[in-house]
């Protein structure tokens, strides 16, 4: 039996800055994971991924990352995505220094 599909967000890095970005429901890219679209259907996730991968002038390294619903929107499941959402742990650089809601 195939494994159950776990919810995903589409994520990538911004082409120019390299910042971690997430795809929103209205086809925009956001720096905030909480604003990302949480995709719960596998077929839908593949379509969203293809659409995002076509935007080669905006983003690089597009992929689906596991996520779960939280009180304020999607939250990471794996620790790697948790680091991508905030920034490195040795300095207060990256998103944790620039954003308030992570």
């Amino acid at each position: 039996m195939p494994r159950d599909f776990t919810p995903k967000v589409v994520t990538a890095n911004a082409l120019i800055e390299g910042d971690v970005v997430y795809l929103t429901r209205d086809d925009q890219w956001t720096r905030h994971m909480s604003e990302a679209e949480l995709i719960t259907d596998e077929a839908e996730s593949q379509l969203r991924l293809l659409m995002a991968q076509a935007q080669t002038e905006t983003v690089v390294g597009v992929y689906l990352a596991e996520a779960k619903a939280g009180a304020n929107g999607p939250e990471p499941v794996h620790f790697r995505e948790a680091f991508r959402r905030t920034g490195p742990s040795n300095y207060r650089h990256g998103k944790q220094a620039e954003l308030t809601d992570v």
């Binding site: 890095n13 080669t56 680091f83 920034g87």
Partner: peptide, 22 residues
């Protein structure tokens, strides 16, 4: 240039894409 075309060129010049940035 697409990313697939560009990636080998940037790598030849030491430019990686990492978790949070280049």
């Amino acid at each position: 240039l697409t990313e697939d075309e560009f990636k080998p060129l940037r790598l030849m010049n030491g430019l990686y894409l990492q978790l949070h940035a280049y």
